[in-house]
Write a protein that binds this DNA or RNA. Sequence first.
DNA 1: GACGATATGAATGTCAGACAATTAAATGTC
DNA 2: GACATTTAATTGTCTGACATTCATATCGTC
Lengths: 241, 241
Amino acid sequence: MENPKTPPSLSAKIADAIRTAIVDGRLLVGDRLPSESELADNHGVSRATVREALKRLAAQSLIRTERGAFGGAFINHLSYAEARAQQVTTSTLLLGMNAISFQVACEARYALERSCTSLAAERRTDALLATMRSEIDSQSTRDLSDEAFCASDVAFHRALVDCAGNEVLSYHLAGSVEAMQPLMNMITFTARSRAEIIDLHRAIVSGLERRDVASVDRALATLEAYTITLGQTVLKARATR
Amino acid sequence: MENPKTPPSLSAKIADAIRTAIVDGRLLVGDRLPSESELADNHGVSRATVREALKRLAAQSLIRTERGAFGGAFINHLSYAEARAQQVTTSTLLLGMNAISFQVACEARYALERSCTSLAAERRTDALLATMRSEIDSQSTRDLSDEAFCASDVAFHRALVDCAGNEVLSYHLAGSVEAMQPLMNMITFTARSRAEIIDLHRAIVSGLERRDVASVDRALATLEAYTITLGQTVLKARATR
DNA sequence: GACGATATGAATGTCAGACAATTAAATGTC
DNA sequence: GACATTTAATTGTCTGACATTCATATCGTC
């Protein structure tokens, strides 16, 4: 967690000890940790140090603290929403900080997204198909900003992965899709390219409706290739400016 | 990040402000934050509060701190290893805390893993194929503990996803595969089931070598079905004990 | 006895000030 | 110029205090 060259601080050590206990299942959801004063005594450190350790754990949503009598630090139930938020933050930063080519990121994202098509075609619901159509309508709005277009694009793809009816799958794929958003926001979508993308979105919905996995896969592959082309255009424009 | 019912603490607010600045790119890798005292003055809080905020960010590997003159808090370069470690922690806890059926988790994992087969068959290297064969040898060792068998199984599948030659894809898939390990550790692998699994691993390697995507996909599908069967056997045994 | 207002106590949240430990740079010495 | 020493900046930790929150117990009134 911390630079291995510097010896870990006391607060880091205490946080690690508690984190290990949680991951190993020695502390269960809902359990209450000892009070900060007790923890301080147990570990032979000051309360301030214990508090720093607890804040580290809170940042990972491992614990939640409540004030007042019989308050304290409780082992948190990690919800899908919290887990997804963390995964998106981590993945977004990873993509932003590692000079990853747009093409590699895109290739990974669409490879992952294709993993849901078979289940999605099998299990898609009318409600989710309606959501996807509604997002397509949004994307067709005139004078839509590029950011809004991207946001709707993300919502469309999240609905697509949700069609697979597997929360765990949705969690992983949502991380992969949303982490791409900052990269996608670099692209300026012309009316021409928007029309192209919307057509492919229509093909995806239609394919899901007919439970035609192959046609969904084809549309996604075309979308991937087209997105990479758009990305390369942007990069070329940047290089020559 | 924190319970929305309770108003966020000052340290949480300060951490959020800095986190947003990092994610938005207003703070770049290597940038140094003001010293704790300066941050305390700027935000009108005590140093202890600032420190709690910084520990939250450190827990997410967003910053790294160095002591001494001209030390301080620096925006951290998020490496693949750090990102993967965090993703694994989050995903493991998500699976452990949400009463997810073994079947759903397994379905998600293998769906995701299949997303790399096409690229893997195309790009597999001799080195990675050798790694996979070596893990198969490990798995064939007599008197191997179930934990060691699982660990080797994870290493095998990580080599498989690495074959795709896409770091971003490896990052996402490693999270999905490794997070399953605690669930897999609940299974006791008989000599019979080990032999079955090893046969399928051999089929995967052979398929990659021949660049035969379909046969790799088939082997993975069989492995998925077999793993789910094993999991159900365990659950039944638990239910009746 | 019932019920509402109040006190109590335990816990987290925050603060102020101090000291220790660490480290790069400035300074001094040969 | 090379090397040892001092210095200053910064994080890490400790102490003790007070503010805030909140469930429970207590008390007073009817």
